[in-house]
């Protein structure tokens, strides 16, 4: 469960990014968060990733309250999340396999388990045959699927995708979205931040619209405003 209660976020520069956000996302939901640039989507993401703390209000994710979480617990909180970025953020000097394995390594997964699990995840994102390739040798869509595989590696309960289709062609975008839907069907909460109207309209899931730092619309099967 993810909950935002009267969340306000202003930056030291004086910019008020979020004015008063209230949100409730249940476990296993699929949610689009949409809005024009500057609406507050990025800030919302940063708050969810614990990169920033809210100025006031509470953010509850599972058993963590992100407003009061101590710094040393943040890594453990982040392990519950799988994050996908617009720019993939893969390690260029590691192969596809190693990029996924790396995520498991850093949380201390035993090597035996890594060897068993990585091929299975690569299979889920249809990349089993590219395991030995480096990111520079595969397409943008494939890179994003590696990123998705990495996000899944530690079996998180929530997947957060920040403009996952922003850097890839429309055909690949559909493939990525289909994968996210598939992952959601496996019982994971999926949050997709995007400004691509056509995708949102096509998938008819819950859509939360942010404008000028407040939630202006929240309905299921919704259309982009």
């Amino acid at each position: 469960m993810i909950e935002f209660r009267n969340v306000k976020k202003s930056y030291p520069t004086g910019t008020v990014a979020l004015k008063d956000v209230n949100l409730h996302i249940d476990d296993g939901e699929f949610v689009f968060i949409v809005g024009h640039s500057g609406a507050g989507k990025t800030t919302l993401m940063k708050l969810l990733l614990c990169e920033e703390k809210p100025t006031s209000g509470n953010i509850i994710v599972g058993k963590y309250n992100l407003t009061t979480i101590p710094d040393r617990k943040i890594p453990y909180y982040r392990r519950q999340l799988g994050v996908v970025f617009q720019d993939f953020r893969l390690l260029p000097n590691k192969t596809v396999y190693e990029n996924v394995a790396f995520a498991m390594q850093i949380v201390g997964t035993p090597a035996k388990m890594i060897k068993r699990r990585v091929p299975a995840i690569l299979n889920t994102v249809n990349l089993a045959d590219k395991h030995a390739s480096f990111p520079s040798e595969i397409s943008g869509g494939e890179q994003q699927r590696v990123a998705l595989a990495r996000a899944l590696a530690n079996n998180p309960s929530v997947i957060i995708a920040d403009e996952p289709t922003g850097n890839i062609d429309p055909q690949m975008s559909l493939e990525i979205m289909n994968l996210l839907i598939k992952i959601n069907k496996l019982g994971k909460t999926v949050i997709v931040v995007t400004h691509e109207q056509s995708l949102v309209d096509y998938y008819k899931q819950r859509v939360i619209t942010i404008k000028d730092g407040v939630v202006v619309e929240d309905h299921v099967g919704g259309m982009f405003e």
């Binding site: 990733l49 040393r72 890594p75 453990y76 909180y77 982040r78 392990r79 999340l81 994050v83 953020r89 390690l91 790396f102 995520a103 850093i106 949380v107 990495r150 530690n154």
Partner: peptide, 16 residues
Amino acid sequence: RKEISIMRYIGATNWF
């Protein structure tokens, strides 16, 4: 630094 930022997103502890 890129690697470090990725590590942090995945949930690596500071010690790691």
